[in-house]
Design a protein around this nucleic acid. Structure first.
Lengths: 165, 165
DNA sequence: TTGATTGGTTGCATTATGAAACCAGGTAGC
DNA sequence: GCTACCTGGTTTCATAATGCAACCAATCAA
């Protein structure tokens, strides 16, 4: 975990906290972003991120230990190992996309965003990462309900939306 | 930023990095989660998170400064202020959901997840937060393409998917 | 063979965080 | 209106995470 003394989220039952614990730190997400863009070697990550080398070492080891990256023999025959996303790591894609989308809207750089996402099959831009109904229709965030696991889902009649004081 | 000395992501053009910089730390996301669940007062966050009070103070101030929370007069007439998500803050919902979904799959607690998400209008479970084509159809992560902003979108013919060595 | 690159490790300085004590103002009970 | 407790912090101190620079062995390019 970044900067915190001893405190760990791993005892928490909440999946959000557990995800954050396993991913490790902000740097980890940027490492994963670069891995999704094709970075495979220590040097790639270091050049792209401008991260201190000892910190990069720590983060890469943590991601390998966490099953998000695999350390594999280089594809090109080099004696240096490479880092490769596991399925667990590739499944972080929606998180990366959601962060990117939010940043494009609320924290964009004066020069605009640096990356754009598209559909490889059609060439179209991606539609927004957004909660969907069972039929795939995008839904308003206010229509997303949360409840403790195992409790019955409130019926729509008894649950007239979020109060907005 | 959590634990890091001086380094800031705010100069980076990447929207992911800029989002992470603005959100602040892991704690911030859990604070936002609680705010989405209805927490409004200092004490709510402290009880729910078990966070040190000085750290909570810092994080809340940072979220207010970042425009993610507003400090508002209490709705019930109390002299103590309350914290309320702004639109910018509510738009973090998809990130929270994506993190929750990943944790449910890859980092679940032995007792199972603590929360479930549903559609307030229909009572159905939410479908997965996932990249979608323009028509709303869910797409494989491997079909998500990334390119530097401003460059032309590669045509599907010339872009036969991610190589998977 | 020589020099540069890669992938680290080590040591030190600085910052973020945790824990506990403390405190002023608000609130509740009576 | 008095008192005790609650709320929302601040302060102090110890520790962990990070940055930076120097160093190093192994690899690779010429």
């Amino acid at each position: 975990m970044a900067g915190m003394k001893t405190k760990s989220f791993s005892d928490m039952q909440c999946s959000i906290a557990r995800s954050l614990e396993l991913v490790g730190s902000w740097w980890s997400l940027l490492i994963i972003r670069d891995a999704m863009m094709g970075a495979r070697r220590f040097k790639h990550f270091q050049n792209s991120l401008g991260i201190a080398k000892n910190t990069l070492t720590t983060r890469l080891n943590q991601l390998v230990d966490g099953g998000i990256l695999d350390r594999v023999a280089a594809a090109d025959g080099s004696a240096y190992d490479e880092y490769q996303l596991t399925q667990k790591g590739r499944d972080l894609g929606p998180i990366i996309l959601a962060l990117s989308q939010w940043g494009d809207k609320w924290a964009v750089h004066p020069d605009g965003p640096s990356f754009e996402y598209f559909d490889r099959k059609t060439g179209d831009d991606l539609s927004a990462i957004w909660p969907r109904r069972a039929n795939g229709e995008a839904m308003a965030l206010g229509d997303v309900g949360v409840k403790p696991a195992g409790t019955p889902t409130p019926t729509p009649e008894l649950n007239p939306g979020r109060t907005q004081k």
